[in-house]
């Protein structure tokens, strides 16, 4: 009888197919920030994807800078501290969600991935826009809550449904970082922290729900389209502006120094 029960147990394990994998990720920053809200939505959407593949992501919110040994990557919303945190992260991928410093890009830190656009990227986007719209008081950002093209409509709706507030650029940066990690881990579930960082740097078709594929430059900056925003906060258009040279790299390339 006992051996019969064991046989049933073994069979049910076999039916469960691939072994479940769980990956721990960490967050350093304010407990009440748009970037954290976006990050949590991105983790939830990665777990929706992972539910079909027996992969789960967990997020630990840290109070200090000490990263737990088990964490595969760290998301950071703490402007001015990225270089410091990256240096102490033991080679793990450190996602910069909010610091737009150009010098930080030019430093080309081996394990920093900058999701938020640099100041120079935004300035180049505005300059492209002003060629066709002289005198226009525009600014540029990673995201706009009223964007509908490509699949922006869908992501804006999901964020609004989840939080009751519109999705801004910081929220998008958090969401994208979590989805980039999630989608990469789904494909390479055996990854350690170094393999994950390598796979992220190699990825050339990441989906930011902004149309063009996203990828990382040698500086660690995410290549991405931007939105142009008017003085009253209204959505004006997208950059690269049609006809501008250089494609996505026409927006703020920062050579390594």
């Amino acid at each position: 009888m006992r051996s019969y029960l064991y046989a049933i147990a073994a069979a049910s394990v076999l039916i469960a197919a691939a072994p479940a994998a769980e990956f721990e990720l960490a967050y350093i920053g304010s407990a009440d920030s748009a970037s954290l809200r976006g990050l949590k939505l991105g983790i939830e959407e990665s777990n929706h994807q992972g539910a079909f593949l027996d992969v789960t992501l967990t997020l630990t919110e840290l109070t200090g800078k000490a990263v737990p040994d088990g964490a595969l990557a760290v998301f950071v919303d703490r402007p001015g501290s990225i270089a410091d945190i990256a240096a102490g992260a033991g080679g793990r991928a450190v996602f910069n969600l909010s610091d737009d410093s150009d010098a930080l890009r030019s430093a080309c830190l081996a394990n920093a991935l900058h999701i938020i656009p640099s100041a120079k990227m935004r300035a180049d986007a505005v300059a492209q826009w002003q060629v066709g719209n002289p005198g226009s008081k525009a600014s540029a950002a990673a995201w706009h809550s009223k964007a509908v093209k490509f699949a922006a409509r869908d992501l804006n709706r999901r964020y609004l449904d989840r939080y009751g507030s519109p999705m801004d650029a910081l929220a998008w940066a958090g969401w994208f970082a979590a989805r980039a990690v999630g989608d990469t881990l789904m494909r390479e579930p055996a990854s350690d922290a170094a393999a994950l960082l390598g796979a992220l740097k190699q990825a050339d078709g990441l989906d930011g729900q902004k149309g063009d594929p996203h990828s990382f430059r040698a500086s660690g900056q995410l290549r991405q389209p931007l939105v142009l925003v008017g003085a009253a906060g209204e959505l004006l258009g997208e950059a690269p502006v049609r006809g501008a040279q250089g494609g996505l790299d026409g927006l703020g390339s920062s050579p390594c120094q």
């Binding site: 959407e45 929706h48 994807q49 079909f52 699949a151 869908d154 992501l155 989608d183 789904m186 989906d207 729900q209």
Partner: peptide, 9 residues
């Protein structure tokens, strides 16, 4: 296909 989950079900 699921566009944002990158799968064919």
């Amino acid at each position: 296909t699921s566009e944002s989950s990158n799968m064919v079900h």
